[in-house]
């Protein structure tokens, strides 16, 4: 867990158990996050399986669930609120957001086949 530190005090990115900054005890926030992410996942499945929405409405709902899922992951698992990080955090988050948007919007664009899809 702990990394190889040097005597200058920098260089331990994880801290390790001995530094345990936030809550000891039972990790409730992780459990809540896990349950929430499961609910959001199954909600998408229910929308597809058990409702008779139009394709566009279905995609909209799924995108909303996906957006909420991102926040669940960031806040419950990725220590988003823990510290005020250096500038690099903003850079990496923006980059992640950019790549995600490229993948999602690009995929929707490609897979709609200019409206000529045969299915």
């Amino acid at each position: 867990m702990s990394s190889t530190m040097d005597s200058h005090g920098h260089g331990s990115p994880m801290g390790g158990p001995q530094r345990g900054s936030h809550e000891e005890g039972f990790p409730w926030s992780h459990v809540i996050g896990y349950v929430l992410s499961l609910i959001l996942t199954f909600a998408a499945l229910v929308i597809v399986e058990n409702t008779k929405l139009s394709g566009a409405a279905m995609v909209t709902y799924i995108l909303i669930f996906a957006g909420l899922q991102v926040f669940v992951q960031l806040f419950f698992f990725m220590h988003f609120t823990e510290t005020v990080g250096p500038r690099i955090h903003i850079v990496s988050l923006s980059l992640g957001l950019f790549f995600t948007m490229c993948v999602i919007l690009g995929s929707i664009w490609i897979m709609s086949f200019s409206g000529h899809q045969a299915y």
Binding site: F99, C102, G106, W109, I110, M111, F113, S114, H116
Partner: peptide
């Protein structure tokens, strides 16, 4: 490099815009 993936399947027929 994140914006070029469709060039592996130009012939799939995603349309001239894509």
């Amino acid at each position: 490099s994140y914006l070029v993936w469709a060039h592996h399947f130009f012939t799939m027929g995603a349309g001239p815009g894509v």
